[in-house]
């Protein structure tokens, strides 16, 4: 082999870079953590089925916003037939009145920071 020193150094740097998550997680020791959103409401059911909520609640929220802001519709009929007022603070955060223990749990985990709270009010935290 020629220029062994340089090439091996290069390869080691490359390997260190692509294995970054490995040693990062080994260092923080948090690879096994999972978010645990706490449900504190007495209700049994969310607005829609739970798997759908888990994947697509942001799409639902945006649909709500568009309906309220653009079409002046305020009432949403869930798939279980119940009527809900389409409101982020008054509906979602009424049942899930523990934003930090609920919404933020998941959001911190996947590193999303919804900007909604720049304008929308977070009700007093309950737990």
């Amino acid at each position: 082999m020629y220029d062994t020193g340089k090439i091996i150094t290069g390869l080691i740097v490359f390997l260190c870079l692509i294995t970054f998550p490995l040693w990062y997680d080994a260092f923080t020791g948090k690879a096994a953590t999972k978010p645990e959103p706490k449900i504190i409401t007495k209700e049994k059911q969310c607005v829609e089925a739970t798997p759908y909520m888990r994947d697509s609640h942001m799409k639902l929220l945006i649909q709500w916003r568009d309906r309220v802001v653009r079409e002046k519709m305020y009432s949403y009929k869930g798939s279980d037939g119940k009527n809900y007022t389409m409101s982020l603070t008054k509906t979602c955060l009424n049942c899930h009145s523990n934003k930090q223990q609920f919404c933020d749990q998941c959001h911190n985990y996947v590193g999303v920071t919804p900007t909604c709270w720049n304008c929308h009010i977070i009700p007093e935290e309950k737990s």
Binding site: P21, T28, K30, T33, N108, V110, G111
Partner: peptide, 10 residues
């Protein structure tokens, strides 16, 4: 994509 591979996300 490293947000899926690191905890906490740097």
């Amino acid at each position: 994509h490293l947000r899926f591979f690191t905890e906490p996300v740097p």
